[in-house]
Amino acid sequence: MSKDGFGRGRLGLVLLTILAALAGGAGPAAAADPREELHAAFDKAVKGKTVAWVPVWLGVLESEWTRVMKAHFDDYGIKMIVRDPNFKSDVQLQAVSTLINEHPDVLVVQNPTTTLLAREIKRAEEAGIYVVQVNMASNSLSDAYVGVDVPKVGRSLAHEIIQECGGGKGSGEVAIIEGEATAAYSLDMKNAAMAEFKTDPSIKVVSSQPANWDANKAGDITTTVLQQHPNLCAILGVWGPMTAGAAQAVKNAGKQGKVKIYVASDGQPADCDLLEQGLFTENLSYRADTQGEAIVNAVIALLQNHDKPGSKHIAYYTTNYWVKSKADRAYCFTVPKE
């Protein structure tokens, strides 16, 4: 049990006591009021429950989710436990296994691969724990999936590139900067984009290389690609910070503005900054802050539905927002000062 968790638990307890006192004060007369009943049912379903949250690590995106979730859960009197495996999948599996033994009410996980947590998710539901999967789905469907529709992001970005470069408007040469070749997120986005590109015969994907989420590597790849294909029209980056390296390489090659850069973004502030500096052409932001709210809503819904864990599978695909100019700043979240 973490210090934070303990603190929150105590806060929840205090709130509970106060609310109980208030409820007691309101007396049975209020019980007939349907609005009051609704509230009482909500409190009963939600208050004092425990939500365990295991991201792959606490990066920018995950921290934003955590921040939003924590704010809401605190408000509802839900206790939240966070485990940070720091990008080690074996540690994440350990954390999830141990948490299932501790039996929280809801388990929120972010899957690093489609298979890693599949067994544990089933085990959790058998043990009567609701499981919410975030952004990256596993092979085991669970009570709820909240997250970005990755293929859709790939298609949208590709569509935008076709608008810009296809049909003879540009050279039609496109480079894709992948994340890690085997990561589902990167793979799905790339495949969807490739399918979309196929619809326009003038588009030619000249390079599709994984940069392993490393900006330097992305820069090196871009430098070489630009060398080989000086007429490159657009670059599709699957992740903002990594693509920043590609953007700098374009700038160093003196082609800023000539080579358009389209990026999938979680909406972190730096992505908007780079766009405002003219390094990125367009971002497609899936907005971690609103995703965080969607997670909270999924949790609240599960707790109130009282379905048996594993009996239904609900998806909450989050909406993507185009960031094309300074005016779209709102689609990037702001990281609060810690």
Partner: peptide, 11 residues
């Protein structure tokens, strides 16, 4: 684990 992930065995 029944899983073969990108970071299996890394480090």
């Amino acid at each position: 684990q029944n899983s073969s992930g990108t970071d299996t065995g890394v480090g």
